[in-house]
């Protein structure tokens, strides 16, 4: 099972590939929305990706800024879900 850092790495790779940004453009602990990298479609895409990639189920009420606000928050959320 991947560590939090490995999850972050995979998320970064996904974000860079899908949103056409360079790795240096992404600040892991800042909101992807505020950085201008994703919009509301991005939330749906990332949610779909983590469910498929990490085998977790995301319910609607969990799709909020606290869980999806940044790369760091998303990876923490994935880890929390896998351990629950």
């Amino acid at each position: 099972m991947e560590s939090t850092l490995q999850i972050q790495e995979q998320l970064l790779e996904f974000v860079c590939r899908n949103y056409m940004v360079e790795r240096d453009d992404v600040i892991p602990d800042e909101s992807l929305v505020d950085q201008g990298i994703i919009d509301s479609f991005g939330l749906v895409e990332i949610s779909g990706y983590i469910q498929k990639e990490f085998g977790i189920v995301v319910v609607d009420s969990e799709m909020n800024r606290a869980n999806f606000g940044s790369i760091v928050k998303i990876s923490n959320f994935v880890e929390k879900k896998r351990n629950s």
Partner: peptide, 22 residues
């Protein structure tokens, strides 16, 4: 026009509002 994960998705108005605030 839209990403493939968006063929079917539940509206998330709170996040939408946040992402459109700026």
């Amino acid at each position: 026009q839209i990403p493939v994960n968006s063929i079917i998705y539940k509206n998330n108005y709170t996040f939408l509002e946040e992402s459109r605030a700026k």
